[in-house]
Design a protein around this nucleic acid. Structure first.
Lengths: 238, 238
DNA sequence: CGTGCGTTTGAAGTCTCTCAAACCCCGTGG
DNA sequence: CCACGGGGTTTGAGAGACTTCAAACGCACG
């Protein structure tokens, strides 16, 4: 039951009574299967439900007036990438699948009712949205201060960390079903340059990205290039 | 009473009972006066209180491993730039004043107690933190997709919008006590280039930034250069 | 009236982009 | 089973935006 992924992530960040977990579990609507590159919600939509990724990958993006697309973040099993819609309603960006994916849907009204009687759960979800914001801040640092290879390295390092926390990294390998053109949109680079960075990493044996799979050859080096601080630990507080 | 600035902003985004406002007002500790460039909280700090900017400017920043500083956001009267500390506790970035500023302090424990009995207020604060995140997302788009002048234009346009909402723009002029070196750190550019962009704007008569004051010569042009969509309105929902 | 931060200018260098074309893999259809 | 089509990847070369280095200048403050 991939719904456990959501629970797992929530519990990593917040202490929650079993009753709250149960209540949450009971309002997650039956799984929906999506194909690759399927839109989930679009900018401008007014949401009435939010989703949990149960398997597969998704990404959020926004297109600027001049038509360029910026990918804001990638999402993996356990993430609730449009949770903010519960409070803000109107989506300020797109959300789509990267690969085939299973998602669970949670109706806003039901969720509201649940949160009304379960302050700890409400707090946990607030926390999730703050952790989401913290990731955005790091992404700003990444775009603002690092070179092309640094940005790429950081992305891979962050992904490894998040996938690792969900038990989805084995043998320094993990799935990442992405195209170079999407990488370019995430990193603020051109496709051509992304390709060159990737090749450099490959020939230096520090990273290989092939057939939707990332193989880390030298994670130390990646973390260093990306200025990645693996001890970023904003989890359980209070 | 500059504390009204906080109320004003909160009310713009959320419908709140007077009792909630009163409760919040009553726990804001007496104003503290800070000089320019004074740290408020630092990365790594575990916060026990959060602040409201009552007058002046502040900014949040993070330094990457290679020593470069990235400014994440600027804050004005009414903002609660470290609100997330209430839930996350450990600060993942620095917060400091840009100019002389007055801030109000709110003790976390008192705030927690208040929120426990005032769900609408809790929700309003959650909303504030989500709006904060939305600004970060736009900033990512700005850094990832725009040229130097586009980024600068966007920053000015965003600032004008936020200051305008607080009644702090008159005659297409507003205070912005910043140095070019800080602009560089915010925009991910070098000081030299920031200077050149600013000069270009000046000679084209579309913007003048002098003595801590921004004068908009041609806001249309700025909004266009920055791809700024002034109709971004994520305010009152539900 | 210095001292120092902030701004301005010039020139050379480099990272990354754009353009353009070839290539490769893989699924589709004949 | 092979030809075809098309998205994705790779390569080359030239162009451009932005950086770095270095130095001068201006203005505010002690």
């Amino acid at each position: 039951m991939p719904i456990e992924m959501m629970i797992r992530k929530l519990r990593q960040h917040s202490e929650l009574p079993d009753a709250d977990i149960g209540a949450l579990r009971s309002i997650v609507a039956p799984v929906k299967n999506l194909s690759a590159d399927a839109p989930i919600v679009r900018e401008g939509d007014v949401s009435t439900q939010c989703c949990v990724i149960l398997s597969g990958f998704a990404y959020r993006s926004k297109v600027s007036e001049d038509g360029k697309r910026q990918i804001l973040s990638f999402h993996i099993a356990g993430d609730m990438p449009d949770l903010h819609g519960l409070v803000l309603k109107r989506m300020d960006h797109d959300l789509a699948t990267l690969s085939k994916a299973q998602i669970g849907l949670i109706d806003h009204e039901q969720l509201e009712r649940t949160l009304n009687t379960r302050p700890a759960l409400a707090r946990a979800l607030w926390r999730e949205s703050l952790l989401d914001a913290a990731l955005f801040r790091q992404w700003i640092v990444n775009l603002g201060t690092r070179s092309a290879s640094g940005r790429m390295a950081y992305l891979i390092a962050e992904l490894r960390q998040r996938l690792g926390a969900m038990g989805m990294v084995a043998n320094e390998q993990f799935e990442f079903p992405i195209t170079q053109s999407k990488l370019a949109d995430a990193l603020g680079l051109s496709v051509v340059h992304v390709n060159r960075v990737l090749q450099a990493f490959r020939t230096e044996g520090i990273l290989d990205l092939k057939r939707q799979v990332v193989t880390l050859g030298d994670f130390e080096k990646i973390a260093q290039l990306g200025g990645f601080d693996s001890v970023e630990d904003n989890s359980s507080g209070a």
